[in-house]
Every structure is written in structure tokens, then in C-alpha cells.
């Protein structure tokens, strides 16, 4: 049973990049374009890990993380937030909301695989 990773980003390019990087590593990757769609996907598809952007329309990443953590589908799974150097306090706010880890944007394929393996084993 391959592990499923949910990537939530309003940028299709990022979602594709996550998919193209992780699928050859044996992961199943599903995408959502914002936090609200991400919550739906979380409940419907029960992913093993979530990688979410923070700046998104409709529902931002912080709201998504907080809502996911109070949902049975999101309890206990690793949630990685995509952060940028320009907003250092976001790491703290993301951790407080319940994020497991973070990746600074921009990131490359090696970093993505390393973080995914680190958090899912």
C-alpha cells in the first residue's frame, strides 16, 4: 500500500513538482488548490502526510492546519508547511497551529524527498 501525500498549493507548478518528485519514490500524490479543498481531500482520501502552502486564497495554510488538527483525519499525521525566508515568524505560528515541520521555499527535489522520508519513515 503506497503512502499518500496531499499537496495543497494554489500553484499547480508546485503541486506538479511535488507529484513528479515523490511519485517515482513510491508515494501516491494528490493535490488541492487551497485550504478548503485540502480539508475535503483530507477527509475523503485520508492521506498519510500533507504538504501545504501558507499563502492561499479561500482558506490559508494556517487555518487549514488548525482545522486539520481538530479533525480525526488530520490528527497525528505529519503536516509540512511551505515557508519563506521573508516571514520567519510563520514557522512559530505554523507550529502553534499544529504543523509538524516546514520547508523553506524555494526547495529542491532532494530536500522534498529528505523531509518526506524524515517525517514518514
Amino acid at each position: 500500500m503506497p503512502k499518500t501525500v496531499l499537496t495543497i498549493d494554489d500553484s499547480k507548478a508546485i503541486r506538479d513538482m511535488v507529484a513528479f518528485t515523490l511519485e517515482p519514490q513510491g508515494f501516491n500524490v494528490i493535490g488541492a488548490a487551497n485550504g478548503a479543498e485540502g480539508l475535503e481531500a483530507l477527509r475523503a482520501r485520508r492521506p498519510d502526510m500533507v504538504i501545504t502552502d501558507l499563502n492561499m486564497p479561500v482558506m490559508n495554510g494556517l487555518d487549514f492546519i488548525a482545522k486539520a488538527r481538530s479533525d480525526p483525519a488530520g490528527m497525528g499525521i505529519p503536516i509540512v508547511m511551505l515557508t519563506t525566508e521573508s516571514a520567519p515568524d510563520m514557522k512559530q505560528r505554523g507550529k502553534a497551529a499544529g504543523a509538524t515541520g516546514w520547508m523553506d521555499k524555494p526547495f529542491d527535489a532532494d530536500r522534498l524527498v529528505a523531509v518526506t522520508r524524515k517525517l514518514m519513515g
Binding site: D10, S11, A13, I14, M17, N55, M56, P57, L82, T84, S86, K105, P106, F107, D108
Partner: peptide
Amino acid sequence: IDEVFRTLHTVKGSGAMFGYTDLARFTH
């Protein structure tokens, strides 16, 4: 304002990841 910011943010962040580092620096 949010919308503008998000657009620039995405162009910068994604640019650096997909081999458009100069674009990212400029957009920053």
C-alpha cells in the same frame, strides 16, 4: 492587496524552484 502579494509570492517562490532564480531575485 492580498491577491497582488500572493501573485508575486508565487512567482518568486516557484521561480527559484524551477530554474528562474534571476526572476525570483528581481521579484523579491
